[in-house]
Simulated scan of single mutants.
Amino acid sequence: MGKTKKLIELDDKAIEILEKQAKIQKRSLKNYIEYMLEDTAARFAEPSEAYKAMMDDMIKKDNEGILRTQSWEAIKAQYGK
C-alpha cells in the first residue's frame, strides 16, 4: 500500500495537546499524529473477511438455537471477579 503526503493546519492549542500526548508515548509529534490518524481510519474500515465469516457463523448458530452464551455475572463469578 502506498503513502500520500498531505499538508494539514492545526491551531496552536491542538498542537500543544498533541505534543504532550506524543511525549507521554515517547513518539515524535509527526509519528503520533500519523499513528492516531491511521488508528482512527482503521476503525472506520470494513471488517475483515475472517471476522465477517465468524459473525455469520455466530448468527447462524443463534438462529438455530445452538449458540451457547453466558451472562457477564456468570463469567465474573467463574474467574473470581
Rank of each mutant, 00 (worst) to 15 (best):
A50M: 08
G65T: 01
D62L: 11
A42C: 05
K81Y: 04
I24V: 07
R43W: 05
K23F: 03
I33C: 07
L67R: 14
P47M: 03
G65F: 03
I17F: 12
A14H: 13
G80V: 06
T69G: 03
A53M: 09
Q70N: 06
Q78L: 09
W72S: 01
A53N: 11
D11S: 10
K52V: 05
I75H: 02
L67V: 02
G2Q: 11
R27W: 11
N63Q: 11
D11G: 04
Y51R: 13
L29Y: 02
L18N: 07
M54I: 06
T4P: 04
A50P: 07
L7N: 10
A45Y: 09
I17C: 03
A74T: 10
Y35Q: 10
G80S: 01
A22D: 05
L37F: 14
A77D: 09
A74P: 02
K30W: 00
G65A: 00
Q78T: 06
W72Q: 05
I24K: 15
K5I: 12
K3H: 13
G2F: 10
T40F: 14
E73I: 08
Q25C: 02
T4K: 08
Q25G: 02
I17A: 04
N31R: 15
A74D: 15
A74F: 03
D39I: 09
K13C: 02
E64D: 14
Q21E: 10
A45V: 00
L7K: 10
Y32G: 08
D57R: 11
I75L: 11
M54V: 08
K23L: 02
A50V: 07
Q78P: 00
Y79A: 01
T4V: 15
K61Y: 03
Q70E: 05
F44R: 08
E16H: 10
K23P: 02
N63G: 06
A42R: 15
E49D: 12
K60C: 02
M36I: 06
E64K: 08
Q78D: 05
S28G: 04
R27H: 12
G2V: 06
E49F: 13
T4G: 07
F44A: 12
K6R: 15
I33A: 07
E16C: 11
Q25F: 05
Q70F: 04
I33W: 10
E38K: 14
D57S: 06
E46V: 12
I66N: 01
E38L: 15
K5L: 09
I15G: 01
K52L: 13
K20D: 10
K3W: 15
K6F: 15
E38D: 13
Y79R: 06
L10F: 14
I33H: 14
L29N: 00
D57P: 06
L29S: 00
K6Q: 15
K5M: 10
D11A: 05
E46Q: 10
S28F: 13
A77P: 04
K26G: 01
Q25I: 00
A22N: 09
Y35I: 12
D39H: 13
S71P: 01
